[in-house]
Design a protein around this nucleic acid. Structure first.
Lengths: 146, 146
DNA sequence: ACACAATCTTGACTGATTCAAGAAAGCAGG
DNA sequence: CCTGCTTTCTTGAATCAGTCAAGATTGTGT
C-alpha cells in the first residue's frame, strides 16, 4: 500500500499531471476492481473528503484515455472501471446480483482479437462478456422465480 | 414485406398478445438491424404515428424477454436492438462513427460460450464485441488526430 | 358480443453523466 | 524559491435515456 509513489510514477509515465484527485482515483481503481463510479467516488472521498464528483469523472476519463484503466459497461449496468489492462482478459457478469469477475481468455492469448471476417475493420480490441449466474445466485436446480 | 402476418405468428408463437405496437416494433427491428431506440420509435411511427415512446420501450422489453430480439449496448452507446437471435454471432463497432455490424463467431459454433475457468458460474451467453475502425473511418495510415 | 386482464397513453420523474464559468493548483523557466 | 501560463478542480445547472404510475383502451377466450 506504499503505492502512492508508484502511482505518481505511473501518471508521469504517460505524461499526465499528478494531482491529488488523480492519484486517489487511480489508487481506488486498483483497490476496487470492477467498482462503479459511485463506489470510486466514495473510496476517493476517504482520502480527499471534499472532491467533487466532477473531478472523479474527469480523472476517470483521462485515465481511460491514457490506457491506465479500462471502462467496462455491461448492458443495463453502470459504468465500471478496472486497472488490469493490456492482458486481454474478459468478464463474467452475474445476471442476478450484477457481480463482475475476471476470467482469462478462453482461447489463449491473442486469437480472440481476430474475427472470422473482419469486414474491413481495423480491430484493436475484443471485449468478451460471459453472462450467467454466479455460484451464490445459482439455484441448485434451474427454477423460475416463483 | 408481407411479413405482417408472419410477425403475428411469431408473436403468438411465444405466447404474446398481438398488438399494433408490437407488430410495428418487431417489424422495425427486422428492418433496421442494430438500430437504437430512437430510430425504432421513428420507424414505428411511420406505421402508427401516435405511438408513445413508452409503448415502444415496453414492447422492446417484452420482445427481448421473449427472446425475439436481442438488446446490445456497447459501452458508451445507446441501447440497440437486433432480431437475429440464437445463432451466437458477434459485433464489430466502429469507434469513430459508431456503426455496428455482425460478424460470425471467430471460434466456430459454441466454443465461445466456454470460459477457460468458469469460476462456478452457470454461463448462458457469451457476448463478444470487437472494437476498431470501419473501412470508411480507417485512415490509410495510422495517424493521430492532429 | 362480453368481461377480464394485459397493454397503451399521458405526463411526470429519476439519476448517471455532461457542460460551463470561474477559482485553484501543477509545472517549467528564471 | 518565485512567477506566470496552462491544466485541472469546484460549483451548480442542464441533459437525456429510460422508468414509474394512473387511468383509458384493446386483445382474447368464452
Amino acid at each position: 500500500m506504499a503505492a502512492a509513489r508508484d502511482v505518481q510514477q505511473v501518471l508521469r509515465g504517460v505524461g499526465l499531471r499528478v494531482t491529488r484527485p488523480r492519484v486517489a482515483v487511480l489508487t481506488a481503481v486498483y483497490a476496487h476492481p470492477h467498482a462503479d463510479t459511485d463506489t470510486i467516488i466514495g473510496a476517493v472521498r476517504e482520502d480527499i473528503p471534499e472532491v467533487s464528483h466532477q473531478a472523479v469523472y474527469d480523472s476517470l476519463r483521462v485515465l481511460t484515455a491514457a490506457g491506465l484503466v479500462r471502462r467496462i459497461q455491461p448492458s443495463g449496468s453502470l459504468a465500471r472501471y478496472e486497472a488490469r489492462v493490456g492482458d486481454n482478459h474478459h468478464h463474467v457478469v452475474c445476471r442476478s446480483c450484477g457481480v463482475v469477475e475476471d476470467v482469462d481468455c478462453a482461447v489463449g492469448e491473442a486469437p480472440c482479437l481476430i474475427a472470422s471476417d473482419d469486414r474491413g475493420y481495423t480491430i484493436d480490441e475484443a471485449e468478451v462478456t460471459f453472462w450467467g449466474l454466479c455460484s451464490g445466485c445459482s439455484p441448485l436446480e434451474v427454477s423460475e422465480r416463483t
